[in-house]
Simulated scan of single mutants.
Amino acid sequence: MIAWLKQYKLLAAGAAVLVMMLLAAAGAWEWQANSYGKQLAEQRTEWADQLRLTAEANATVIRKQQTDRLVLEARLATLDTTSTEKLTHAQDENDRLRREYSAADNERRRLRIEVRVARADATVSATTGAGSLGDAASVELSAAAGSAVWGIRGGMISDREKLVYLQEWARQVLRGE
């Protein structure tokens, strides 16, 4: 019986060690799961904070871009209004001059242009290679050509004002970026 008791004690001690090992393993498992859970929770919190900061930064950039765009649109609207007024004024002035020209008597309706005409009798110098110009002369345009001058002048005024507008528009857009 003693031998059986010794075996029983040995078996009981082995079972106790096995139970202790199982309890230790379960405790370690629980502790480690708890530790990993805390780490994951911290990572989730950090990730959410980072996403929030990124979203706030993006929102700030978008608000600034929208404000800049509104300012640019206001400047371009002002430029558009001013340029349209200048063009209208210049075209009105050209139309006024055209009406005056049309209503004038024949003597005042003649358009004369002062020009310098190359002299046909001038010889070209072999050393300089340049021709000479004669004295200033006056050229008189026909009535049809004189009338066409106002159309040409109106086109030049319009083109010049449009060019000034487009150059300023480009400056405003480049400055607005």
Rank of each mutant, 00 (worst) to 15 (best):
N94D: 11
N94G: 07
N94Q: 13
N94H: 08
N94P: 04
N94E: 09
D95M: 13
D95V: 11
R96E: 07
R96F: 08
R96D: 06
R96K: 13
L97S: 03
L97P: 00
L97K: 04
L97R: 04
L97M: 07
R98C: 03
R98Y: 05
R99I: 09
R99M: 10
E100Q: 14
E100V: 10
E100C: 09
E100P: 03
E100H: 11
E100R: 12
E100M: 12
Y101L: 03
Y101E: 00
Y101K: 02
Y101A: 02
Y101V: 00
S102C: 14
A103L: 12
A103V: 12
A104C: 06
A104T: 05
A104L: 05
A104P: 01
A104N: 06
A104Q: 05
A104R: 06
D105M: 07
D105Q: 09
N106A: 15
N106G: 15
N106W: 15
N106P: 11
E107P: 01
E107I: 08
E107Q: 11
E107R: 06
E107A: 10
R109V: 02
R109L: 02
R109G: 01
R109K: 10
R110S: 10
R110T: 11
R110E: 10
R110N: 11
R110K: 15
L111V: 06
L111D: 00
L111H: 03
R112F: 00
R112P: 01
R112A: 02
R112H: 05
R112N: 05
R112T: 02
I113T: 01
I113S: 01
E114I: 09
E114S: 14
E114M: 12
V115A: 04
V115C: 02
V115D: 00
V115L: 04
R116G: 06
R116K: 15
R116D: 05
R116P: 00
R116Q: 12
V117H: 05
V117F: 05
A118Q: 15
A118E: 15
A118N: 15
A118R: 15
A118K: 13
R119A: 12
R119N: 14
R119Q: 14
R119V: 08
A120D: 10
A120W: 11
A120E: 09
A120C: 10
D121R: 02
D121P: 03
D121A: 05
D121M: 05
A122I: 08
A122F: 07
A122P: 02
A122Y: 06
A122M: 08
A122G: 08
A122W: 05
A122E: 10
T123F: 11
T123G: 09
T123D: 14
T123S: 14
V124W: 08
V124F: 07
